[in-house]
Design a protein around this nucleic acid. Structure first.
Length: 552
RNA sequence: GCCCUCGUAGCUCAGUCGGAUAGAGCGACCGCCUCCUAAGCGGUAGGCCAUGGGUUCAAUUCCCGUCGAGGGCACCA
């Protein structure tokens, strides 16, 4: 019996009581069925009676007793007890609980997938770094989390597009080009330019590929360097992200926004909706009508569009491309954008609560042996994504960054990440997977075909088996809540708990026949349980973009 | 000054759409491998859940104030 079925049984019991007139309420309040923290409180517990007591004008424990009495006779339940202020603690019989293993094995890779977001087309935009340098550890967090959010949304049934917005236009690009050009000509990089060591490499690479570039007049040379350096940098970012197993469906160029006419179309859309006005020679968007602190300039007095105009056009373009929901993953240094982006959606005629969502991620604080490191492309003190991958590996890096909620500040010690890779919880989870794989391999070598043998779930009645089964049954709910809350870290935390449940089971419950022991029903049942656990861990790790090794 | 996010074990952090004795990892200490992977399991030590009020049958969780940390407040990008 799955938690959903338990919840259904509780709901049915309450409806029956209401129909009989045993409990008088206008509507049945929402109640929760959850796994109690303490196993003494049963396999599942519900607070339905506490929620029902007030509207029914009854004592909570009395209501609980009425509901419990009905649940006791439902097949699959072995106990229903009233406890504390009015909780109902439920126990399943081992056959009902054990059936979960069969459900999981039969579902395979589809186990955990759901439909809560079916029919929703979502655009998830993340990283969107300037193509003026390598991606660093800060971006790495958005890569890991953004990709995991996309995966989790897909698991919940959404149609997801991963998108990277390339800021390939404007002042920063010019400074970048000027920096590379200066380096190539042996001149000092401008004060406000980019000073990282990679600038020199970039300059040398470009000159080697195009020796004539240094003979061009200054203006042309600047453009040539800017474009060449941009191309190299973008390609590098794409390659590194590929290495990090983070693929984007769309790389969207800011420059392209202008070339395709999307900016004009976006402004036209806003004009139609009637939220634009002229003042001091500039064209503004009245975002204050929708919660922004101040109105924003779209076209400067000199006629040039602002960066905000591009942002606006970009949003309108996303909607025009058919996305129901645009999710933006931004760093905390951009949180001032939230209100204005929502205002943009409203100005474009959308309901911001439905069509736009801005997730603010706290910045990663990086230390090395306890000493703060400032990440600055311009100062050249960066820890790149590539270095992180080389030092700790993709799995460990992705997992470490994805196991924390994005809105919590995070301190990572680079030295510790490298030194203590074995302490990374990812290995704990992966180890459980490898361990199970080994057991199943051994079973195969012993000639045991557990999949074809008869599986009697009632045999899984050990406390550790029961606990493991309960954990496994939670997986779909974890995936669904991770998707709805955009919090993939819940999957990671769940996997750690699941791995613990497995290790504890493994420690006490021997799976395979020992020595010349005959194959018995318990061996088969435990193999089904192992297979279910392995499938769940593999599916969960896949949602985080982390591999599930057969051996370690 | 105004706004956003955050304050939980020595350290890094979970938990909190209100629920029954607050958790993990690391670090410290003590146990467990003649047979399925010890990258594991068991145990000990470690907390006024920043602080003061409020709402509630019930607050670490929701609301307000205070203190502290980080970030943001451009016709920059």
């Amino acid at each position: 019996m799955t938690p959903e079925q338990v919840a259904q049984a509780v709901a049915d019991a309450v409806s029956a009581l209401v129909a009989e007139g045993a409990i008088a309420v206008d509507s049945v309040p929402e109640a929760r069925v959850e796994r109690p923290k303490s196993r003494e409180h049963g396999d599942y517990a519900t607070n339905i009676a506490l929620a029902l007591a007030k509207p029914a004008g009854r004592n909570a424990r009395d209501v609980a007793e009425l509901v419990a009495a009905r649940l006791r006779v439902v097949p699959g339940f072995s106990a229903a007890e009233v406890a504390g202020p009015g909780f109902i603690n439920l126990r399943l019989d081992s056959a009902a609980q054990g059936e979960v293993a069969r459900t999981i094995v039969e579902a395979g890779p589809a186990w955990g997938r759901g439909t809560v977001l079916s029919g929703t087309t979502v655009n998830v935009e993340f990283i969107s770094a300037n193509p003026t340098g390598p991606l660093h550890l800060g971006h790495t967090r958005w890569a890991a989390v953004g990709d995991a959010i996309a995966r989790v949304l897909e698991a919940a049934g959404a149609d997801v597009t991963r998108e990277f917005y390339i800021n390939d236009r404007g002042v920063q690009m010019d400074k970048f080009g000027a920096s590379v050009m200066a380096a190539a000509n042996g001149r000092p990089v401008p004060e406000d330019g980019y000073h990282g060591g990679y600038i020199l490499d970039l300059a040398a690479q470009i000159v080697a590929e195009r020796p004539g570039i240094l003979d061009l007049p200054d203006v042309e040379q600047h453009v040539a360097f800017r474009e060449a350096a941009y191309a190299v940098q973008l390609r590098e970012q794409q390659q590194v992200l590929e290495l990090f197993r983070t693929r984007f469906d769309v790389w969207y160029s800011e420059q392209g926004l202008y070339e395709s006419g999307a900016v004009e179309r976006g402004l036209a859309r806003l004009r139609e909706q009637g939220h634009m006005f002229e003042q001091d020679g500039a064209t503004w968007l009245r975002t204050t009508d929708f919660g922004d602190d101040k109105d924003r300039v779209l076209l400067r007095a000199n006629g040039e569009p602002t960066y905000f105009a591009a942002d606006t056009a970009y949003y309108v373009d996303k909607r025009a491309r058919g996305f129901d929901l645009a999710i933006y993953l931004l760093g905390a240094d951009h949180h001032g954008y939230v209100n204005r982006l929502r205002a943009v959606a409203a100005c474009a005629g959308d309901d911001p609560d439905r069509s736009i969502e801005v997730l603010i991620g706290q910045l990663v604080k990086i230390t090395r042996d306890g000493v703060d490191i400032k990440l600055s492309k311009r100062a050249g003190t960066i820890v790149t994504l590539e270095e992180v991958v080389e030092e700790v590996g993709v799995d460990a890096a992705r997992y470490t960054l994805a196991r924390f909620p994005v809105d919590s500040p995070l301190t990572l010690d680079v030295a510790e990440m490298v030194r203590a890779t074995n302490d990374n919880p990812v290995f704990y989870v992966q180890y459980a997977h490898a361990r199970i794989s080994s057991v199943l391999r051994n079973a195969h070598e012993l000639g045991i075909d557990w999949l074809a043998a008869e599986f009697d779930p009632a045999l899984l009645d050990h406390e550790r088996e029961n606990n493991l089964l309960g954990m496994l049954a939670e997986f779909p709910r974890v995936v669904a809540s991770a998707a709805e809350l955009r919090e993939p870290h819940r999957v990671a935390r769940y996997l750690e708990d699941l791995a613990t449940a497995y290790h504890r089971f493994y420690d006490v419950c021997w799976v395979l026949p020992r020595g010349d022991e005959e194959l018995a029903g318990i061996h088969v049942a435990r193999l089904w349980l192992c297979a279910a656990a392995r499938q769940t861990i593999a599916n969960g790790l896949a949602l985080l973009g982390v591999s599930a090794p057969e051996r370690m």
